[in-house]
Amino acid sequence: MTAAILLWSVTAAQAMLVAAMGCYAYRVIRGPRAQDRVLCLDAMYVTAMLLVLTIGIRSGSAIYFEAALIIAVLGFVSSIALAKFLMRGEVIE
């Protein structure tokens, strides 16, 4: 009984996280401005990391934790690089 509840709530949570990634993807594609795109790309990385964590809960395997950590680190570095680029790269000085 409780196992079924856990299964269904993890499934629902994964659906919600995928929907969240869809919302962010819409903002990344539509903009309106470059800073909105970078903000939502960063948030997409975080949501993808959470999705990997829920997959880990669902499968009961600890290996997904490392994947989540790698996504978090790579997302952080790429968001920093993009934010720096916005400050120096695009605006004509």
């Binding site: 709530s9 919600m16 996280l17 969240a20 990634m21 919302c23 962010y24 939502c40």
Partner: peptide, 18 residues
């Protein structure tokens, strides 16, 4: 189950907020 639903619900609300 409760914590997973809470976390993903908050994340979805944040995404709707953007």
């Amino acid at each position: 189950a409760f914590l997973v639903l809470l976390g993903s619900g908050l994340t979805l609300l944040g995404a709707i907020g953007t």
